[in-house]
Design a protein around this nucleic acid. Structure first.
Lengths: 125, 125
DNA sequence: TTAACTGTATTATTTCAGGCGATACAGTGA
DNA sequence: TCACTGTATCGCCTGAAATAATACAGTTAA
């Protein structure tokens, strides 16, 4: 398991790990029941602290993407792909919810809010 | 100019000032060419540092809501109401832009993204 | 049973950004 | 020139986040 860690990046190491595992699952490079390296093993490879890897695994476990067998190792969950997609949707949904509630709290009408959304959508392409 | 400052709030003082000025303009309590208290004056009233007031005024000036006459004072801009609305739209637009670009970078299709938006919109009411 | 491996818990260190204040500077006008 | 405007520079403080050091606890196989 070779991961690319940019320690001078502003995004923390543990999140870089989370993200890269997500990507591997998305493109099928990791599938159900595949074992992940132990926290110590991966920590050695990346020359970081085992706790940092553990934190990444904790996050991934919370998201339902991986699971642990006590004192045995860490594995990709069955349905990791689905879980990964759910997580992605959850994050995007949170961003939209924030935008909508902020707008509403500023007294924008539904039409105005939708107008801004449509405009950004057009601007995106 | 009596403002309510909650120094134990998590939102910084200078933003509390910005927000309250915005509100006064929105409800017409402040209109074009109305003078604002000097940075020292307001700082005295609120028992904070003049720099903190200056920072709030800087932000409001950047937003086009107020303007300064050199060594003379600070005044509400003509069209402050409009500027205030523009600023509001700008902020909301930024939130939507963020949501859309994040979603796209995660490989969501336009349909999926719009679906999430619609769902949040329904959830909001 | 014990050695060698899993993950976990606790606590400390470090870093960094934000917010705010002290203080000195610069422009304007009565 | 005095008294008032806003400005610039600098430094301190604090809180949160990230990471690390280290000790703990469970499983498995020789």
């Amino acid at each position: 398991m070779i991961l690319e860690i940019n320690s001078s990046s502003s995004t923390p190491i543990y999140l870089q790990i989370v993200e890269q595992i997500h990507r591997r699952i998305a493109r099928g490079a990791l599938t159900a029941e595949d074992p992940l390296p132990s926290v110590r093993q991966l920590a050695l490879e990346l020359t970081i602290n085992p706790n940092t890897v553990a934190r990444a695994y904790l996050e991934l476990e919370f998201q339902g993407v991986i699971y642990k067998r006590q004192a045995q190792g860490t594995y990709v969950s069955p349905g990791a792909g689905e879980a990964s997609r759910v997580e992605r949707d959850r994050m995007v949904a949170a961003l939209f919810a924030r935008a909508i509630s902020e707008a509403a709290s500023f007294g924008m009408t539904p039409e105005e809010i939708d107008g801004v959304y449509q405009k950004q959508w057009r601007a995106h392409r």
